[in-house]
């Protein structure tokens, strides 16, 4: 019983923390983010297993984590409100070529980050060539280029 309940509690804590931290928290993994992730997992490990060194305990934790994640996926697919509550919705940052200052500021995204996303995904180097830039639920920025006929 114990490892299953511990895992559920840890999952809930992580879900709340990373949901409230915002979309951008871990989307682009800088070296420091990676370190932070390792430290988080190290801290979590204690809470998950405590003094339990058994194979059975580890198996239960793993199965619980996968099952909870699958269940959350199912709930997101089935209920829109659950998806919005746990993942949020995409945010439009550039619309019709126009940079929207407010959502950019709220999500702490700079124009250079949008240009970086445009360069790596579309081979675009200029703001004028971007039609739409969208901050996705996953925290990545997707770029829709202006079509040539415009």
């Amino acid at each position: 019983m114990d490892p299953v309940l511990r895992t559920l509690a840890v999952y809930a804590v992580l879900l709340v923390v990373f949901r409230l931290a915002g979309k951008r928290s871990m989307a682009q993994l800088t070296t420091f983010d990676l370190l932070l992730l390792l430290v988080v997992s190290e801290a979590t490990q204690q809470a998950l297993l405590g003094e339990d060194f058994s194979l059975t305990g580890a198996t239960l934790v793993i199965v619980t984590l996968v099952a909870v994640e699958r269940t959350a996926d199912f709930l997101r697919w089935r209920f829109g409100w659950f998806a919005r509550a746990t993942q949020g919705r995409p945010v439009v940052l550039v619309a019709g070529g126009k940079v929207l200052a407010e959502p950019m500021a709220r999500n702490h995204v700079t124009e250079s980050e949008i240009l970086a996303a445009a360069r790596s995904s579309q081979g675009i180097s200029d703001m004028a060539q971007i039609d739409y830039a969208i901050l996705e639920e996953s925290g990545t920025i997707s770029i829709l280029p202006r079509s040539r006929s415009d």
Binding site: M1, D2, P3, T56, G57, V63, V66, A67
Partner: peptide, 19 residues
């Protein structure tokens, strides 16, 4: 998935200790 759900229910009931 069904087996995993069954396993977790049994674990909660204490088949693997502590229930």
């Amino acid at each position: 998935w069904a087996l995993a759900a069954l396993l977790l229910l049994l674990a909660l009931a204490g088949l693997f200790g502590g229930g």
